[in-house]
Computed example of a mutant assay.
Amino acid sequence: MQRLPASLLFTICVLVWSTTWYAITFQLGGSTPEFGVALRFMLAGACVLAWRAARGETLRFGRRAHLWFALQGVFLYGVSYICVYHAERYLPSGVVAVGYSASPLAGGIGAAWFFGTPLTRRFILGGVLGLAGVALIFWPEFGKTHVGGQTALGVVFTAGSVFLSTIGSLLASRNGERGLTMWPSLGFGMLYGGAAVLLIALVSGQSLVWPSAASWWVALLYLALAGSVLSFACYLTLLERLGAGPAGTIGVMTPILALAVSTLFEGYRPDALAGVGVLLAVAGNVLILRKSAPVRAAARAAE
Results as ranks from 00 to 15, higher is better:
215 S>W: 10
169 S>M: 12
144 K>V: 00
28 L>I: 08
280 L>K: 02
59 L>M: 11
274 A>C: 09
5 P>L: 03
219 A>M: 07
134 V>Q: 04
175 N>I: 01
271 D>T: 06
47 C>T: 08
123 F>S: 00
17 W>R: 04
43 L>A: 12
107 G>A: 05
139 W>T: 06
242 L>E: 06
286 V>E: 04
120 T>H: 03
71 L>V: 11
73 G>W: 00
72 Q>H: 14
144 K>A: 12
259 L>H: 11
229 V>I: 14
274 A>G: 10
287 L>F: 13
56 G>N: 05
56 G>W: 01
36 G>L: 03
243 G>A: 08
20 T>I: 11
289 L>Y: 07
35 F>H: 07
219 A>I: 06
222 Y>C: 10
297 A>Q: 12
104 P>A: 00
63 R>W: 15
95 V>R: 01
178 R>P: 05
33 P>L: 07
67 L>R: 13
257 L>E: 13
254 T>S: 09
175 N>Y: 00
124 I>R: 04
191 L>T: 11
107 G>N: 10
120 T>S: 12
184 P>L: 09
263 T>C: 15
300 R>Y: 13
184 P>D: 08
18 S>Q: 13
141 E>G: 05
165 S>M: 02
38 A>C: 07
22 Y>K: 06
130 G>L: 05
271 D>W: 09
129 L>N: 04
51 W>E: 04
28 L>G: 15
1 M>S: 14
38 A>R: 07
113 W>V: 13
94 G>S: 14
303 E>G: 14
5 P>T: 01
12 I>D: 02
239 L>M: 10
182 M>T: 07
92 P>A: 06
128 V>R: 00
78 G>L: 04
40 R>D: 09
28 L>D: 11
59 L>D: 07
2 Q>G: 03
149 G>K: 08
303 E>S: 14
253 M>L: 15
13 C>D: 08
6 A>S: 15
300 R>M: 14
235 Y>K: 08
115 F>N: 06
98 V>G: 11
288 I>H: 02
31 S>V: 05
174 R>E: 07
36 G>T: 01
163 F>N: 02
261 V>H: 02
236 L>K: 04
254 T>L: 12
229 V>D: 05
37 V>E: 03
159 A>G: 09
182 M>Q: 11
64 R>L: 15
203 V>Q: 10
267 G>F: 03
40 R>A: 09
63 R>H: 11
31 S>Y: 03
121 R>F: 03
114 F>Q: 10
54 A>D: 00
134 V>A: 12
282 V>F: 13
271 D>G: 15
78 G>N: 05
240 E>P: 02
46 A>H: 00
165 S>Q: 05
259 L>V: 15
194 G>N: 02
167 I>K: 01
177 E>A: 10
201 A>H: 01
15 L>W: 06
259 L>Y: 06
110 G>K: 08
281 A>Y: 07
78 G>E: 00
261 V>E: 06
147 V>H: 11
294 P>C: 03
303 E>C: 14
196 A>H: 05
164 L>M: 06
128 V>Q: 00
64 R>V: 15
95 V>H: 08
72 Q>F: 14
66 H>V: 03
3 R>G: 11
